[in-house]
């Protein structure tokens, strides 16, 4: 039933200075979890390390019960752990179709073309000029391509690092609608977000990371008016309003 679990997890860029300092949690199959926390709390580092992009310095990660600690990121993608980085999440110098073709190589040969078409149907913007370089896409369209690339392989678990970063409120709405559909289809979601309101609307459970440690783990509805969260996010809330 557990989709992904971490135990005593430590990660960072320098072995002497872990940024994530011993975090443990388990995500159930089909759950949507959001990781919140102030800037510099280690949220991004946490999911990058789970995805094999940052060195794991201690502890254990399991995916569907299998130990995946230290497994390189390409092998994790093959095992069905999807990850969408926050920035530079598409190949700008490859065409839109080529971006999807690379991802499609993780599924069986006969399903590849079908999966690419499915993504084009899901994100019609991408279908307009599939042979243009992905670098010509707008910010919102890039996020769509990044999501399409990750979803193409039907990953049981999908992790996203701030999918709303840098998008207009309207586009944020669209992204989260898509994510809600994906979640409804049974995909387990782990979402790092600064946009607390949007994240709490989608996720049923929130992990709050403060200074590399897990400060809170519980259902989101309990968190909506929690004073802890208010204190943690005062700065971000005001910024959100300003935006």
């Amino acid at each position: 039933m557990t989709a992904l679990a971490v135990k005593g997890f430590q990660a960072g860029y320098d072995p002497d200075l872990p940024i994530v300092k011993g975090v443990s949690f388990a995500v159930k199959k089909g759950e949507a979890v959001t990781v919140l926390g102030p800037n510099g709390a280690g949220k991004s580092t946490l999911i990058k390390a789970i995805a094999g992009q940052v060195a794991c310095l201690g502890g254990q990660v399991t995916l569907g019960g299998d130990d995946i600690t230290g497994v390189p990121s390409y092998a994790l993608a093959k095992r069905g752990l999807g990850f969408v980085p926050q920035t530079e999440n598409i190949f700008a110098q490859l065409t839109i179709r080529e971006n999807l073709q690379i991802a499609s190589e993780l599924v069986e040969k006969r399903r590849r073309a079908g999966q690419i078409d499915k993504m084009f149907d899901m994100f019609p913007d991408l279908k307009l000029r599939p042979n243009d370089l992905a670098g010509t896409l707008s910010g919102g369209q890039r996020q769509m391509l990044a999501a399409a690339r990750a979803l193409l392989t039907d990953p049981p678990v999908l992790m996203l690092d701030e999918p709303s970063a840098g998008l207009s409120p309207k586009l944020v709405g669209q992204v989260f609608e898509t994510l809600a559909r994906v979640h409804a289809a049974g995909v387990t979601l782990i979402l790092v977000e600064q946009n607390v309101r949007a994240a709490l609307g989608l996720a049923s459970r929130a992990l709050v990371l403060v200074d590399g440690e897990l400060a809170h783990d519980g259902p989101t509805d309990a968190l909506q008016d929690s004073t802890t969260l208010g204190r943690l996010f005062l700065g971000n809330r005001t910024r959100e309003v300003a935006r």
């Binding site: 093959k78 598409i90 490859l94 690379i102 993780l106």
Partner: peptide, 24 residues
Amino acid sequence: SSTGRSMRAVSENPSLAGVYGIDV
């Protein structure tokens, strides 16, 4: 070819290539 595509991808961004499932 698919190999060539992977090569171009790695040359642009090796760590993203890993995320896409390419064995760098």
